[in-house]
Design a protein around this nucleic acid. Structure first.
Lengths: 198, 198
DNA sequence: TTATATTGTTACCGAATAGTAACATATTTT
DNA sequence: AAAATATGTTACTATTCGGTAACAATATAA
């Protein structure tokens, strides 16, 4: 039994490594410029071996999405269960969202979501994001309801918020010049109070 | 002479149509899933004919970028020449930027900038955007200087601003449900005052 | 009208690459 | 130890597609 578990764990670990390496390569070189041979050689195996862990190339994107959306939704479960104002919820969501998407697998998901060639998978991917977006809209509406957030179009605000947060994935490097805390502070200040002085 | 001009004009017009159709296809199906045969058949010509107007596939991206960056810089020239506060400049920039990037060629540029395979072209593309970003940073700094914009990190603010504005290109459809004026108002309200009520 | 430049076509090449079939080896279970 | 399962490899297929050479037609200029 324990050996079975170990085998299963090994398998899961190998899948994780494949996802992480593939995601990194997709972000650096792009999805179509990264061949399965490239990905395979990163794990020191050959291409057919990958097919033991993934269904096909596109399945890598799907699996990156599953992992990332799982994390985001779990975080939203936590944040939305708290007994705090809508604005405070939004604040905490932003803070923790930045923490989640600074990760190759998450960045890969953000960049490629809704771009699967398979129609069913593409529809599912779009739905996954819409669901998350709707939960954030719910937070915004709560904030408007309890008076902590200025009255606004929650749909547009949620989209603008995700655009700027997801945009981070294409330039922010955890080891770069910009400190994560400073970045988070600037985002929170901008979203909270805008740029106007008066 | 007049015939020469007409020929030259015809040529330019055909190139414009190629760019517009290619840009639209790239946005709908993606760059790699759109073949040159696809693009050629949209203009009712064959693939080799395209090579009379473009150097190669990547050159389409380059030309979309030239057109778009030209428009943005011309707009910045105008806005920055005015005798108004930094905040008012930023306000006008945002308003007119939204007008510019709601266009297939501009959307294509935004989505594919910095992704050329040719190293030189990629570097040039990155530089083009950095230059524009720096001009917006200059506006922000002026606003901080004249007291119209809250003291903040102009680098991060400029990036966040472009992320949310460029993000529009992937969801906003001019003929969709969201009115351009309402969208612009929401963006300006968010950037100006944030979401916080107090 | 004749020469020249422009615009277009057909037919093809070469390279890349996703995915598979058949076969080999290691590991676990009985 | 034997059977079964999991993991991996080599070799190959099929297809797509960017780009080009050679050739044809058309418009412009001399």
């Amino acid at each position: 039994m324990q050996q079975n578990l170990t085998r299963e764990e090994k398998r899961q670990q190998k899948l994780d490594v494949i996802l992480r390496n593939a995601a990194k390569a997709f972000m650096e070189r792009g999805y179509y410029k990264t061949s399965l041979d490239d990905i395979a050689s990163m794990q020191n195996v050959t291409k057919p071996t990958l097919y033991y862990y993934i269904k096909n190339k596109e399945d890598i994107l799907v699996k990156c999405e599953e992992v990332t959306c799982g994390r985001i939704n779990a975080m939203l479960d936590e944040v939305m269960a708290k007994n705090i104002s809508g604005y405070e919820m939004l604040y905490q969501f932003i803070m923790r969202y930045i923490g989640i998407i600074i990760d190759d697998v998450a960045r890969c998901h953000v960049r490629h979501r809704g771009q699967m060639e398979d129609e069913m998978l593409r529809a599912q991917s779009i739905k996954n994001h819409k669901d998350i977006e709707n939960r954030v809209r719910e937070i915004i509406r709560r904030g408007i309801g309890d008076g902590s957030i200025r009255n606004c179009n929650s749909t547009i605000l949620a989209i603008l918020l995700f655009d700027s947060l997801n945009g981070l994935t294409s330039w922010y490097k955890a080891d770069g010049k910009v400190d994560q805390n400073e970045l988070t502070d600037e985002v929170l200040a901008l979203v909270g109070s805008g740029v106007c002085r008066t």
